[in-house]
Design a protein around this nucleic acid. Structure first.
Length: 565
RNA sequence: CGGAGCGUAGCGCAGUCUGGUAGCGCGUUUGGUUCGGGACCAAAAGGUCAAGGGUUCAAAUCCCUUCGCUCCGACCA
């Protein structure tokens, strides 16, 4: 129970100018968050209560899934990160600092290294597997652009779990357990989160789901098929290629002058053909070696897909010298007559009568048949999937939606366990490397995502499970001893039944209290006022409803409990 | 990292072009009238005008530097 007259709580009529999205504005206006600096926020008493409730649900589901809680240092020795190689590969996104002896440390942005190093020391027998451990801890990332309050901060609360299994089959079971726990967690906190297939990114590994919350303010693109439910991150999404728009044969190719025309769009316009008639050729470095990629001129290359096709090779943009060595000094490269491996998008299979760069400044080749005139190593899915492309599962058109990632599951394989020598002895006494998985939930981000998804023009609408207080009790006549006595008695009774009550006992006019209660978003509003008591009791209203019901005092506990159930 | 914009009271802003005693609304304090969807009247507190340097008789205002914040971009022959 808390009384507003004693609470550190200031609501704002206007949102600070730097708040862009609705959830950020509301969290500030409702007095839950205050900004300390870019990407750094202070939780006010109301805000931390809501965060703790989300945390509690995450913990409960982790424990139910058999995961055990631990807590690692945030400040970690650089050696740990050098061992996995991420001291180098993490780049400037990781905070690094030195102690007085000039030894380097990092502020952990994630914790695969720390958990794997621990598992190496603590787990030595197959009898100890499987093992899932987790922690609830602040993480630090030097974001390029912190944004949207808790959505993308430099410091944020994350639940990170790591599974250790004897083999791939065991890892699959652990993955499934965590995946199922995530579904329950997001359900319980009142968030609609959709699991989508995702790329595994820098963290490594080979299989992954992201839990996305659809929101117009989302920073990620998700391709979604309404017909069959397929959903995938834009980086990962695949498509099926419908009937080829290309001719199947062509006469001999010829060189055509295209002065000053470099971009596919310009070349197509210049020659008066559709943009997809021009083939986009791109040279990149895969593990330092040049490779050419071909896609239709109206599409963009998905380098992550290329990476997968090339077995996980490190893909980099080609430097100028490499491009020169392929095509000489020119602005129109193409696959005809080059000596390097060429990969083409599936849409280009059998494509003929297309236009490609001539490897000669100011010229392109037309009437090219890729099969006849170029040496294509393989046709693979290599483009970034766009809206209206065909769903890989059912062929219906895909829609693109914005989303925010609140959780992710990865199968890590043995990437970290090998680096750290995390092995165990199997039944026969033979040493074997553990198979890992890792599972993260952005807890603070989840909190704000809930607000982003659940609000109206008057303020936040907290799901009861995570509301800072479940009941806002407005005492409209704080000078009337009878009203105050009834309100106090109700608050006591509710608290005794496990309901969190926030009493607005300020000497404010009723309108102010109504506005503030809506803004803060108590799931249930109870009004204690002389007017209501004259009609027979308290006035009870759900945040989502318009009208209140009069409920006599002796029925109140029962009524509230049933509303919360 | 590149581009743009902003920094004046706790919050939202005006004043800057054209240099001359620091302003408004909300919030806060006090008194009064009010009292069921952000009341009204009166009085008051609250500012190194982001910081440093320069020009000037005089700088929030002009010039230089630094810092902070926000937005946009990160893209291909």
């Amino acid at each position: 129970m808390m009384r507003w007259s004693q609470a550190l709580l200031n609501t704002l009529r206007e949102a600070p100018q730097d708040a862009e999205i609705i959830s950020h504005k509301l969290m500030i206006r409702a007095g839950m968050l205050r900004k300390m600096g870019g990407g750094l926020y202070t939780y006010m008493p109301l805000g931390i209560r809501a965060l703790r409730k989300v945390e509690a649900i995450v913990r409960e589901e982790m424990e139910k899934a058999g995961a055990q809680e631990t807590l690692f240092p945030i400040l970690q020795p650089a050696e740990l990160w050098k061992q996995s190689g991420r001291w180098e590969t993490m780049g400037p996104g990781m905070f690094r600092l030195k102690d007085r002896k000039d030894a380097w440390y990092v502020l952990a942005p994630t914790a695969e290294e720390a958990f794997t190093a621990l598992a190496k020391n603590e787990i030595s027998s197959y009898r100890q597997l499987p093992c899932i451990i987790y922690q609830m801890q602040d993480k630090f990332r030097d974001e390029i652009r912190p944004r949207f309050g808790l959505i993308r901060g430099k410091e944020f609360l994350m639940k990170d779990a790591y599974s250790f299994d004897a083999d791939e089959a065991g890892a699959d079971i652990s993955y499934r357990k965590m995946y199922d726990a995530y579904v329950r967690i997001f359900q319980r906190v009142g968030l609609q989160a959709t699991p989508v297939e995702a790329d595994t990114g820098d963290i490594g590994g080979n299989f992954s789901h992201e839990f996305m919350v659809f929101a117009s303010s989302g920073e990620d693109g998700i391709l979604n098929c309404e017909a069959c439910g397929y959903a995938a991150n834009q980086e990962r999404a695949e498509r099926v290629v419908a009937a080829s728009p290309y001719a199947v044969e062509a006469g001999a190719f010829e060189m055509v002058a295209t002065p000053e025309q470099h971009a596919c769009e310009d070349v197509a316009k210049f020659l008066g053909v559709p943009q997809n008639q021009v083939v986009k050729s791109l040279v990149v470095l895969a593990d330092q070696k040049p490779v050419m990629v071909l896609v239709p001129g109206d599409r963009e290359v998905n380098l992550l897909k290329l990476r997968r096709v090339l077995g996980g090779a490190k893909i980099e943009e080609a430097d100028e010298a490499t491009v020169l060595s392929v095509a000489g000094p020119c602005g129109s490269i193409g696959p005809v007559g080059v000596e390097l491996p060429v990969y083409a998008d599936r849409a280009l299979k059998e494509a003929a009568d297309v236009i490609v760069g001539a490897n000669k400044e100011g010229f392109h080749l037309r009437h090219v048949s890729l099969a006849r005139d170029a040496k294509i190593l393989a046709y693979e899915d290599l483009v970034i999937v766009a809206e209206h492309d065909a769903c890989p599962k059912c062929g219906k058109p895909l829609a693109i939606r914005r989303g925010t990632e609140v959780g992710q599951c990865f199968k890590l394989g043995t990437k970290y366990s090998e680096a750290f020598g995390a092995s165990y002895l199997d039944e026969t006494g033979a040493p074997r490397i553990m198979t890992m998985g890792c599972y993260g939930i952005g807890v603070s981000r989840t909190l704000q995502a809930i607000v982003e998804q659940s609000n109206d023009e008057n303020g936040i609408i907290w799901p009861a499970a995570v509301a800072p207080y479940q009941v806002g009790l407005l005492v409209l006549d704080p000078d009337n001893p009878d009203v105050v006595a009834k309100a106090d008695a109700l608050a006591e009774a509710l608290e005794a039944n496990g309901v969190d009550v926030f009493i607005d006992d300020r000497s404010e006019r009723p309108g102010v209290k109504f506005k503030d209660a809506d803004l803060i978003g108590f799931p249930i509003r109870v009004v204690a006022g002389a007017k209501g008591f004259a009609k027979g009791g308290f006035e009870v209203r759900r945040r989502t409803e318009k009208d209140s019901a009069i409920v006599p005092p002796e029925k109140m506990v029962e009524t509230i409990l049933s509303l919360l159930a």
